[in-house]
Nucleic acid binder design. Sequence first.
DNA 1: GTCGATGCAAAGCATTTGCACAGAA
DNA 2: TTCTGTGCAAATGCTTTGCATCGAC
Lengths: 147, 147
Amino acid sequence: MKTAWEGKLLNYLKNKGLRHSEARTKVASVVAESEEHFDIQQLVARVQKKYKDIGAATVYRTVKTLVEAGILRETFQGSAGVSLFEFTSEDHHDHIVCVDCGSIFEFHDEALEAIQARTVQSHGFEEVRHQHVIYARCRLLQKGTPE
Amino acid sequence: MKTAWEGKLLNYLKNKGLRHSEARTKVASVVAESEEHFDIQQLVARVQKKYKDIGAATVYRTVKTLVEAGILRETFQGSAGVSLFEFTSEDHHDHIVCVDCGSIFEFHDEALEAIQARTVQSHGFEEVRHQHVIYARCRLLQKGTPE
DNA sequence: GTCGATGCAAAGCATTTGCACAGAA
DNA sequence: TTCTGTGCAAATGCTTTGCATCGAC
């Protein structure tokens, strides 16, 4: 049985005439196991921990490929100023980042998406993707820290 | 007569116990003249064109100060992967960036802001700021170009 | 066998930092 | 005078690239 990301990857590589190499599969599999938001440096570390023979440059090159294949999604800049990525799931969501503790909370609001779509269209654009990040404080109301 | 940014700068420096140096004023004045979205490299070029004696490091250091003072706002990453800044005006707005031509369109939608505020609050957060960028195509009738 | 993909190390680049000097307070 | 701010250059750290080799097709 083939997982969704394997299908996407094979399909993308085939369409682009790219090769189905071992390194690409290995990096993709590590990405698929990563639930959280991560930057490329962290991914390099994880990949190299599991597969000693993969160079950092390959991870950088593969990440670009995976984003184009729709397997990875570039989200927003982390505190270090580098882009964070996440494994693409079916459901679209946006992010709230706590400026105090750095925790990342995912949310999805149909009404918000609908209004956004209307706004974009009314200005004559056709949306490709969007990045909506809200920086906020999560401890104000003494609620639990969102995971 | 004092402009808004001069007031903000003096006030911020005073509150923080920082010095009102010539370099800070010069960089701020160049920022105030810049209407568009720009990255720090571009700002360095503009500053040094007008004032030969200001180092790049000072511009980097001053940009941080101006952001904290509320005179500059960090918006989103440009195509080169570096952050773009804009001079802070009174009206809040978000951005639509054309993925084809790179042009930047500013929009403001009250309904969208209202729903966003509701969403943030319902999850127990207190918003500090947000970054909402929509990547889209500005030429609606043009077909995409899959290679 | 071809030619794209990879690993390694070097290069590239934006940004930060160390340090001696300049200049606000 | 005191001590922060600045200019310069070196250092840093992430990312890309050149090149010889490897491997998918």
